[in-house]
Design a protein around this nucleic acid. Structure first.
Lengths: 228, 228
DNA sequence: CGAATAGTGTCTGTGAGACATTATATC
DNA sequence: GATATAATGTCTCACAGACACTATTCG
């Protein structure tokens, strides 16, 4: 039996909603290969580190965020033989859904880091196979909004129904009926809980504030196929 | 930046339905560590092999099956530092849903291989962290039957609605109403297509034969939460 | 007051689940 | 004939989507 000795990295698809657009955190590479190109943040797994730990450490290093903020999960693993010119590198990609951060890129050690609207990133813009990893992450996020309450991961701890609706509209790139959306969100068991507070964003009637509820799955789900 | 040099393997969660039970293919280990213990089939990734290729090769070696039979997808990656006593081994697990095979374990190179009902496999029965990998695979299969037509992957190329229903009943461990199930399956766009043939399994009215349809997702889905 | 946003109510069509009925085979 | 399985139909309730209407703020 032949063993295959390879390097193992983690790469992060960090998604947030800023300025009404779904955005991903990218870093500008400071070393070869792909020097100067944009790439997903990531790095090598340390010898005594579990994969989740490595991803959480990279998240802290790149954003200063605690992985318990928002949502964090393993996405998929990529290991085509030629994906890194330096040799055999297998990367485990992680997906994080984050609220709009006050200090976007706090403690980044990369040459440069920036949030970029995912619609502005075109095929070939990113180093390695990061185009595909990013696309897979976005698709995972879109699908998960249907059956899980993860849209709340894009929101601050307290949010209004309208803000949650804007998350869905931004991620799915659709328009949703505010009245039906309100009824479905407040009717789905454990999706959101009223905090009792209210807030006025611009003008109009004050909106109730909610926090995320305890449900792990949405019953009934909010389907993209419908028009809500 | 420190690189982490590790070995990379693929492990397979192979699921089928035999004798009315959801069963997984296990091999009895012929070498240390865990000599004599049951484990998931798998092996090292070869130097010039993509991960999917390695998993497909292992599938062929263990079962003689072509990966295009049934359904095949990446499940998740496991890499806790102590999961293999020989050193750092990261494993990418794959999930396959297979029809009941005529020759269960054709060309296996393992000391012994057998289909085992998953309900008979208890915590601690399997080597390494394969208990958890198997559990993750079963849960993935259960969830995917809701929103995708993958139940057909457990069936031969032509099957009856009753056989498809038995797949759902076996995987979900529930009873489904045959009449409502028939209406929902034949009503879901692209789930199944009638071949025109009929067959009599034991006695009773002949059943229509179907093949899998072109749909990748079920609209509307078949939800576990309901009673069908 | 009007404009804007938040939230509730009402109506209609469709699907889920419960279950009756008909169809076609074997014994 | 009886029995078993397949397939269709019927009924009721709940939810989805469309959209009218009320509530509460700012200017």
């Amino acid at each position: 039996m032949t063993t295959s000795v390879v390097s193992v990295t983690v790469d992060l698809v960090l998604l947030t909603i800023r300025q009404g657009a779904l955005q991903a955190l990218l870093i500008r590479r400071g070393i070869e290969p792909y020097l100067g190109k944009w790439a997903l943040p990531g790095g090598f797994v340390l010898p005594d580190e579990d994969l989740d730990e490595a991803a959480a450490r990279e998240l802290r290093e790149e954003t200063g965020l605690d992985p318990r903020t928002g949502h964090f999960e393993q996405l998929a693993t990529y290991g085509a033989p030629g994906r890194d010119p330096r040799g055999r590198v297998v990367t485990i990609a992680y997906l994080a859904l984050l609220p709009d951060l006050p200090s976007p890129v706090a403690g980044s050690d990369a040459a440069g880091a920036a949030w970029r609207p995912v619609d502005d990133i075109e095929a070939g813009d990113l180093a390695f196979d990061h185009d595909r990893i990013l696309a897979d992450g976005i698709e995972r996020a879109r699908a998960k909004l249907e059956y899980t309450p993860l849209a709340t991961a894009f929101c601050p701890p307290e949010f209004t129904v309208a803000e949650l609706r804007q998350v869905y509209e931004t991620v799915w790139r659709t328009r949703l009926d505010p009245r039906n959306f309100h009824r479905k969100v407040t009717g789905a068991e454990g999706f959101v809980e009223a905090t009792g507070g209210t807030v006025i964003r611009e003008r109009g009637r004050p909106a109730q504030l909610f926090r995320r509820g305890p449900a792990a799955l949405l019953h009934p789900p909010l389907l993209r196929s419908g028009q809500v």
